[in-house]
Design a protein around this nucleic acid. Structure first.
Lengths: 199, 199
DNA sequence: GTCTATAAAACGATAGAC
DNA sequence: GTCTATCGTTTTATAGAC
């Protein structure tokens, strides 16, 4: 950490930013190290200095970084004590806007790589699992705080996750935001119904 | 077509079967042609004889074949005039069983490749989109026949799709069938609620 | 239709100078 | 910490015999 708050990002961060964008768009195997180095304006030497484990270690770190960014995004949309039904609706609307603005390129930072490596790399699978779990924990906590029972809060969080991830897949494949809009309406209705249940 | 119904499958079919399994488990870029040829006991010459466009044409054909198989699976679970609420429940239960039996390797035959190529190959993206659309059409028709309004039938079909695909992703990543069970209960409840709506 | 040999490029990874 | 040169392998694709 330097003392002055200079805005220049260090090489490690530039590599992680570039790999985050490329892995999410083209997948793990579809992204070459050369492309990452070109996009981050770095050299092979730097990559293997920061990530001695090579491509796999870089990808695991990229999954963790993407997991943190997205968890903070969920926390921003679901502030403590806020209206979880409205937050759900607004979250899906924001997701639809992001997907459309990036021409259906940027959706979930984890999903593509997670499906690729789930059966081939245990280290990467676990990094993806921890990212997903951290999102579910935030949602579950907010739903519980809003008055939903502990068991139902976890279930509603899982349903929320499945809805947005499935909608991302369908949206990017069909090149339409309609699935995200439909999944958003359905999810906010699910949250509202869970709130109305006897606790 | 030979006159006798011999059970030996032709080379083209063997290649498509092998690519279907490998692409779904390891993704498009993660699967080499050599692995496909080894698994199908075929030679380079045969592959380029049947698929002159190379890997991309093979993958597009594989996506179409997987789309047909899965559409027929949905049709088998949703027979004409059957109980769509129960069919939804049983479909998710069957999905959970399949995922568990294959040690979390086989879920959706399209999803992994669809996410990989959505932003990089228009031909493959369209093949995946047509597969997904064909599944949605079957579900939508069955929901309409069961008395759900036209607009709602499409929405419920999309919600069904998002739930199962999101659950597949989470299930394979966490190595747990719980997300599929939760998504199945939620989806059958959604179908039941749509049936109860005034048409 | 099938086979092998091989081209040509891209891949991940390493070594060693600075 | 960064850079380049390079190794060895793997990749997709083609050519030509059969």
């Amino acid at each position: 950490m330097s003392l002055d708050k200079s805005k220049e990002v260090d090489t490690r961060t530039r590599i992680l930013d570039a790999s985050g964008e490329l892995f999410r768009r083209r997948g793990y195997s579809g992204t070459g190290l050369k492309a990452i180095l070109a996009a981050s304006d770095a050299a092979y030497g730097s990559l293997y200095y920061f990530f001695p484990g090579g491509k796999e270690e870089l990808a695991a770190a990229t999954l963790r970084a993407g997991g943190v960014v997205y968890r903070e995004l969920v926390e921003a949309f679901f502030p403590e004590g806020g209206d979880v039904v409205n937050a759900t609706q607004v979250f899906f609307e924001g997701a639809a806007t992001m997907v459309e603005m990036t021409d259906y390129a940027d959706a979930c930072p984890i999903a593509t790589v997670a499906l690729e490596v789930a059966s081939t790399s245990e280290a990467m699978r676990q990094a993806a699992a921890e990212a997903f779990e951290s999102w579910l924990e935030v949602l579950e906590r907010r739903f519980r705080e809003a008055g939903i029972s502990s068991v139902r809060a976890r279930e509603v969080a899982v349903e929320f996750f499945c809805a947005i991830e499935g909608a991302f897949l369908l949206s990017r494949t069909l090149r339409s935001t309609a699935p995200i809009v439909i999944a958003g309406r359905a999810s906010s209705a699910v949250v509202a119904a869970a709130l109305a249940e006897p606790s």
